[in-house]
Amino acid sequence: MSFTTRNGTRGARQPKASRLMKWMNDRAAHRIRTKGGKFLGFNALVLTTVGAKSGARRANPVGWFPTGDDDSWLIVASAAGGPKNPAWYYNLAAHPADVTIEMAGAKVPVIAEQLHGTERDDAWRRITAAAPRFAQYQEKTDRELPIIRLTRRSS
């Protein structure tokens, strides 16, 4: 399936990119890479994508949810309910097969796929049951929050 979610027209205010935000993301990514575990109350991983325009590698800490399969993970492009999709969403759309995730010292090559229809609906119910904060994010914006399944690539 394709990455088809457009930006919305309303949503939560997003912090501007700054040195402080970069430092915080870098610190969180380092902690997740070395210790794994939770970050901001979520199971966390470091998502490394290839820039859609720049071609540069970009790493972002994100929360993940189980799929019931040990070889896949769900992430939500929520941007905390902001009107725009996060930049990493467009990176995944441009290069869905050139993605890696890292957790507690393990680096896993994955393929990204956006969920749609009943598959998305089922995943959304599981995600909001586990983390009601995401239902609040959805209420803040008029875009449907994209759910992405990351599946381990065979070597």
Score class of each variant (00 low, 15 high):
116 H>G: 14
29 A>G: 09
50 V>K: 09
32 I>N: 07
71 D>T: 08
68 G>H: 06
133 R>S: 11
3 F>G: 14
140 K>N: 09
128 T>E: 11
23 W>T: 13
41 G>P: 05
131 A>R: 13
127 I>T: 04
96 P>Q: 03
26 D>R: 01
21 M>F: 05
140 K>F: 04
65 F>H: 08
52 A>F: 09
40 L>F: 06
65 F>T: 10
113 E>T: 05
115 L>N: 03
79 A>Y: 14
122 D>T: 11
98 D>W: 00
110 V>D: 09
149 R>L: 05
23 W>L: 09
115 L>Y: 00
52 A>K: 15
50 V>C: 11
119 E>Q: 03
78 S>P: 10
40 L>N: 09
75 I>W: 02
40 L>G: 07
132 P>K: 01
64 W>P: 13
24 M>W: 07
67 T>K: 01
131 A>E: 07
93 A>G: 03
18 S>N: 14
142 D>V: 05
122 D>Q: 04
65 F>I: 04
121 D>G: 06
38 K>T: 12
153 R>T: 01
94 A>F: 03
23 W>D: 12
131 A>G: 07
8 G>P: 13
101 I>A: 03
27 R>P: 15
134 F>A: 02
101 I>K: 02
68 G>T: 01
50 V>S: 07
10 R>I: 10
22 K>P: 00
155 S>D: 09
87 A>P: 01
66 P>E: 06
48 T>P: 12
149 R>A: 10
70 D>E: 08
59 A>G: 06
115 L>G: 10
152 R>N: 01
38 K>M: 10
11 G>T: 08
91 N>G: 11
80 A>R: 03
39 F>R: 02
148 I>A: 07
133 R>T: 15
53 K>S: 03
41 G>N: 05
56 A>C: 08
57 R>T: 00
120 R>Q: 14
130 A>P: 13
101 I>Y: 08
100 T>I: 01
61 P>Y: 03
141 T>H: 05
116 H>E: 03
83 P>W: 01
68 G>S: 10
50 V>I: 12
4 T>N: 09
130 A>L: 02
28 A>Q: 05
113 E>S: 12
77 A>G: 15
14 Q>I: 08
5 T>P: 12
73 W>V: 07
99 V>E: 09
54 S>Q: 06
15 P>D: 13
49 T>N: 09
117 G>K: 04
8 G>E: 14
146 P>L: 00
